[in-house]
Design a protein around this nucleic acid. Sequence first.
DNA 1: CGTACTTGGCTAACGTTGTTAGCTAACAGT
DNA 2: ACTGTTAGCTAACAACGTTAGCCAAGTACG
Lengths: 180, 180
Amino acid sequence: MTPTPALVQRSTRAAEIVAVARRILEEEGADALTMRRLASAVGMQAPSLYKHFGTKRAVEAALVEHGLFELGTVLHTAVAGGARRGGGPVRRLLTAYRTVALANPALYRLATAGPLPREDLPAGLEDWAGEPFFLAAGDPWRAQALFAFAHGMVVLELDDRFLPESDVRPTWEAAARAFS
Amino acid sequence: MTPTPALVQRSTRAAEIVAVARRILEEEGADALTMRRLASAVGMQAPSLYKHFGTKRAVEAALVEHGLFELGTVLHTAVAGGARRGGGPVRRLLTAYRTVALANPALYRLATAGPLPREDLPAGLEDWAGEPFFLAAGDPWRAQALFAFAHGMVVLELDDRFLPESDVRPTWEAAARAFS
DNA sequence: CGTACTTGGCTAACGTTGTTAGCTAACAGT
DNA sequence: ACTGTTAGCTAACAACGTTAGCCAAGTACG
């Protein structure tokens, strides 16, 4: 319902840096995303990056922005996408959430773990990305609970925190039923 | 039901290092826990720490061990503790979980976020700490869901990820009812 | 009793990290 | 034609985890 927020406008070079940073993040992991590695992958020296981003956190904030935007896009279409796809909106939301998170694990962690760099993010982006939970759950408390469940499941899955023999999909299924 | 696992036995000095590390972690944050800072707080030079712990990760593993042990202790007594305290076992479990996690936020994050240093942990400790969820929930899938919800709520609370005006306790209450 | 070994401290140093200072070539504006 | 601004560079700094190598004190034992 809230209009899609606009992404921060960036110069060609800055956009290229963010794109390369994202590739490094997903292909080589969060530890590989250093200023020197990023600079070399983009064809310059590390200090030159500071002509485009004031700090490494600013680069990460740009990545978080992309992550939240994509997550929000997927979740909104999942909730809105009619009864064509299986189940109710809650089920579609949960499926979409898990899919996009597991598809970009490093970006998901960056965007959802640790404190948010709110001052470097477009206003409203965070709320907009979380809105599908309210749309699907009905009231704010169920939305909170649904969000907490989904986030908890995903990070525990990513961290390999469940018992090895335990299958995780029945739990998602059960939650979808419980919250519908 | 599973017997309480034994903690790793450590020399006096090593135990002191872990205790100091924990104090630094909670009082000054995870970033302040550096080998030099830790060494100086314990009265030695950084390289001397390596006479007691092979790596920084090993120090952190010792902290994780403490964290899981305390969490497990609290959760087990919460679930077992008769009908004296309010509500059913699920409600007591959730209250205890939130309380201990918010009381030691940095330790909680260290113990539950990111991959576990399983090879440096006493065998069975992880399972034992998670067992109360199975005891309270009944079957494994509900246990998984309950754990994911509790963990998700706590990390989102710690990361200040909920909307500022949103009260979080009704959500815990509702979950306690839903899982009972 | 002396000797060998272990324990636990030290200093110096290495490589990597984020970041700053200061220089410079290219380009735009008046 | 001068003057900024933009975007690159090299050199360097402090802090990080960690390793190497030295040395004093204690301990085991023949």
